[in-house]
């Protein structure tokens, strides 16, 4: 038995240790790794009617992945332009949502983390309570706000800023707002946690030594908050790239999210292997992207857990 395991059992007792270890293993292996492996397996198989599963036609194939790149065999185009465009658009949009969230949430997290007083707790509560409401309802609420005769348009037209209502939905503004709003807490709280532990004297020391505010953030606060920032960005990016409800409800008619394609494959086309392949491609690409960005900004995997 390796040392850390022996120490773990010594500390918690054989009984308690086994229960805890068992639960964690069940969670990671039974609920995460095995289903994903089964999806991986699906993605390499042809979509066969049930009687043929396990039959001679049930062989490993790359055709589901080829489909994403080249489209249907004998199709009119060289590449599957539609799906690929959706794929890249999803990634770019998720990056944009992440950056937008970071820009919005960093000042809020900084304010929450560095201000003392009871009103901070109320402020935090006001951020949290809306999340008691179901995600779908929140998305529909935004639809009402951004709709053609919605609150925002009524106001803008009423004030004479626009002559005719602006179509926030078709222009995807509602979608980005909805995605951004859906995950702000996941951005604010990791950053807030780190910044709260930053000694305020550090900020004053930098100021006393002549630093303007932007340099204090650049040299003192942001380096310190980096683990929180990377943790927040990772979560927001992963979740918005994988979001389904917000694009479904707030997306314009012409702008599909990649997850909607996956959903269509699974549900509308009943093509699980194809859906699984799309999902795996999305997952792997997102992970690689996150790892690349982490390497670029010299963030360790351990920092994310902070």
């Amino acid at each position: 038995m390796p040392r850390f395991l022996r120490e773990f059992f010594n500390r918690n007792g054989t009984m308690m240790g086994s229960v805890m270890l068992g639960l964690v293993l069940f969670w990671t292996i039974g609920l995460i790794i095995l289903p994903q492996l089964s999806m991986l397996d699906f993605s390499f198989r042809p979509n066969l009617p049930p009687p043929e599963i396990g039959g001679p036609k049930d062989v490993y194939t790359l055709e589901n992945y080829k489909y994403l790149i080249y489209g249907p065999e004998g199709g009119s185009q060289d590449y599957n332009a539609v799906d690929l465009r959706v794929f890249f658009r999803t990634l770019v949009a998720a990056v944009c949502v992440t950056l937008f969230n970071l820009i919005l949430c960093y000042p809020i997290a900084y304010y929450l983390g560095q201000t003392k007083g009871n009103h901070i707790r109320i402020f935090a509560l006001m951020l949290i309570i809306p999340y008691w409401i179901n995600e779908i309802l929140r998305a529909f609420a935004l639809r009402i706000i951004f709709g053609e005769s919605g609150v925002l348009n009524t106001m803008l037209v009423g004030l004479g800023i626009f002559d005719t209502p602006f179509d926030f939905i078709r222009n995807d503004i509602a979608l980005y707002a909805g995605l951004g709003y859906a995950y702000i807490l996941l951005m604010i709280f990791p950053i807030y946690n780190v910044i709260e532990s930053l000694d305020h004297n550090q900020i004053e020391a930098a100021r006393d030594l002549g630093a303007p505010w932007w340099r204090i953030h650049k040299r003192v606060v942001i380096p310190y908050a980096k683990p929180g920032i990377s943790s927040g960005c990772t979560m927001v990016f992963m979740l918005s790239a994988g979001a389904l409800a917000a694009p479904q409800i707030l997306g314009g008619p012409s702008s599909l999210w990649f997850t909607q394609l996956i959903y269509q494959q699974f549900n509308d086309n009943s093509d699980w292997p194809q859906g699984a392949a799309y999902a795996i491609v999305l997952l792997v690409t997102c992970i690689l992207l996150v790892l690349a960005v982490m390497r670029l900004f010299k963030v360790n995997m351990g920092d994310i857990g902070k």
Binding site: D199, N201, Q202, E204, A205, R207, D208, L209, G210, A211, P212
Partner: peptide
């Protein structure tokens, strides 16, 4: 404070 000809040494040094 960033424009004054003073420098402060903090109790916890910072």
């Amino acid at each position: 404070p960033n424009k004054r000809p003073t420098a402060l040494i903090f109790q916890n040094l910072a």
